[in-house]
Computed example of a mutant assay.
Amino acid sequence: MNAMLVGADRLGNIPGVLEEFGIHIAAHVTGRDRSHQRRASDLPTGIEMVILFTDFLGHNVMLRFREAASRAGVELVCCRRSVCALKQALDKREASRCRQCESPACDRRSRA
């Protein structure tokens, strides 16, 4: 799955955590550029998930990318920029997806 990360200047160990969940970083935007606050353009092509690091973003940047994700119909994950917070958010996402799954042979069901 291709994800766009929004927020944080440095990612640290976050790419490793995302790889554990099968998520590839297709784009990373720090959110500091003024154009990120005002522009209401679409997400890059091929993005399937937007991850917002809320403790490194202003409200206008968050609003802009939330709306862009909604327009594109992609999944949105919001969390603080820490490995623990990201794992919790992704585990919660997996658990909610697994509850919707009715297949007893689902490989996600065994991880939940």
Rank of each mutant, 00 (worst) to 15 (best):
G73W: 03
Q100E: 15
Q88H: 10
H28L: 08
E102I: 06
D91A: 05
S96H: 07
A95C: 02
G16H: 08
K87Y: 05
D55H: 09
A26K: 11
I25M: 06
S103D: 15
S35F: 01
R38W: 06
A105D: 12
D42G: 12
L86P: 12
V29A: 07
Q100F: 06
G58D: 15
N60G: 00
V83R: 13
N2T: 13
G46R: 11
E19P: 00
P44K: 09
H24W: 05
P104F: 04
L52N: 07
V17N: 03
G7N: 03
S110W: 11
R38I: 09
A112S: 14
V29G: 02
R38F: 10
R10F: 08
D55R: 10
H24Q: 14
L52T: 04
I47H: 04
A95Y: 07
I51G: 01
D107E: 11
V83S: 14
V6N: 12
G46F: 06
R80M: 08
Q37D: 02
G73I: 03
R71P: 04
R39E: 14
R39P: 00
A27S: 10
P15S: 10
L76W: 08
H59R: 11
C84M: 04
V74G: 05
F21R: 12
E94D: 11
N2V: 07
Q37G: 07
C98T: 15
V50K: 03
D55K: 10
S35W: 04
L63A: 13
R64L: 02
D9E: 12
T54D: 11
M62C: 15
I23V: 15
H24N: 14
M1D: 04
V17Q: 08
L43S: 06
N13Y: 00
I23S: 05
H24Y: 05
C79W: 08
G58T: 15
A68N: 07
G12I: 02
S82R: 10
T30C: 00
L5P: 09
R34C: 01
L43M: 03
R108L: 15
A69T: 06
L76R: 06
R81D: 07
I51V: 14
R32M: 10
M4R: 06
E75C: 04
A85C: 02
G22E: 13
H59E: 14
I23Y: 01
D33H: 12
A40M: 09
V29T: 10
R71D: 11
V50T: 11
P15E: 12
N2Q: 14
G12D: 15
L11N: 10
M62D: 03
A27H: 13
A85N: 00
